[in-house]
Amino acid sequence: MSEVPRFWRESRHRYRLVGTRCTNCDTLYFPPRVICPTCRRESVGKMKEEEMSGAGEIYSFTVVHDGLEQFKMQIPYVMALVKMKEGPFLTAQIVDCSPEEVKIGTKVTATLRKVRSEGKAGIIQYGYKFTICP
């Protein structure tokens, strides 16, 4: 079963960090949503796409030692909850650093990277990862 259509569908949002703003309560959501969980039916037709800057800070993190098959080669790798400058939180890897450099509060910025590939020689899937701001 091919995963291509499933992941391609979200690629635009993943490449450019596009979320949705509820223009009813002025809250930005990422990942994108069709309905605002606060305004519910009041938000129908009022969700507008909006790109984030890519700037954020680490809210929590972990160093993964025992992970998914797809990510085995990267172990140990850092997963983090990143609080974006615009408000939303997201889950992503922190790369190009040693785990010791990662702290709660560390400023990070998004970068487009290969995240995984489908099968052994399959299609490469891209998405955001974060690096520590110099």
């Binding site: 499933r6 992941f7 979200e10 990942p31 972990t62 993964v64 025992d66 992970g67 998914l68 797809q70 990510f71 990267q74 790798y77 997963m79 997201l90 889950t91 992503a92 890897q93 995240v115 995984r116 899937q125 998405g127 955001y128 990862k129």
Partner: peptide, 12 residues
């Protein structure tokens, strides 16, 4: 789409 895709496990 938004957790596991990026390498998150339940333990993480």
């Amino acid at each position: 789409e938004w957790e596991t895709f990026f390498g998150a496990t339940e333990c993480s």
